[in-house]
Amino acid sequence: MKRIQGDNIAKHYGKGEAMVFAVKEATFTIEAGEFVAVMGESGSGKSTLLSILGGLNSPTSGKLMIDDIDVYALGQEERADFRRESIGFVFQNFNLIPYLTLAENVMLPMATLKGSRKRKRDAALHALNMVGLSEKAERLPSQISGGEQERVAIARAIVNEPPIILADEPTGNLDSKTGKDIMGLLGALNDYGTTIIMVTHNPEYAEDAQRVLRVSDGVLK
């Protein structure tokens, strides 16, 4: 289980008068197993906050603790290991690798791990089965719909069974019905105990979360 604690996290770009604050002194706690929606207007800093939570973007100041680990006190390579073990990412544009099949895309987070090809493949097929796409495992991303691509992205995020999933507008490019399907999937994962932090514009989808964090001009409310 992973408890996430942000302590006075700030992130700014540029210097002097050109300095822009993306996140201003955000202090928050997300309990293990929570489903949290992060809402805010475009450019409000919510994606920056998500990248900081994912160990991808060093804050200018403040501290991010996940359980008892100070994430940004880790070296770059240790942080990469931490991401692989603890965090699954679902990107807005799916970001599947176009030259890999769906099964291979889902296996990607396991590419650097030891283990037999069969074990990895079985895990990928299991994850694809969870999102209802195991029958299309050998297709390329270009051969499936946008909604299906998003489900593959979720399968990829959960294949290593990470305790935390960060989803950046997972329904942003989808129609309403497919968006609801994706929300259902995320809800189901949360039911299994996975912490979900989802950035969204859509208040309807935010209602599915247990808690909503609002970001406005870099300030977390």
């Binding site: 390579e77 290991d81 991401r83 970001n95 690798i97 990607l108 650097t112």
Partner: peptide, 11 residues
């Protein structure tokens, strides 16, 4: 994306 998924620089 590889790096976000936990690929090290050496990978």
């Amino acid at each position: 994306i590889f790096r976000a998924m936990g690929f090290r620089k050496s990978h």
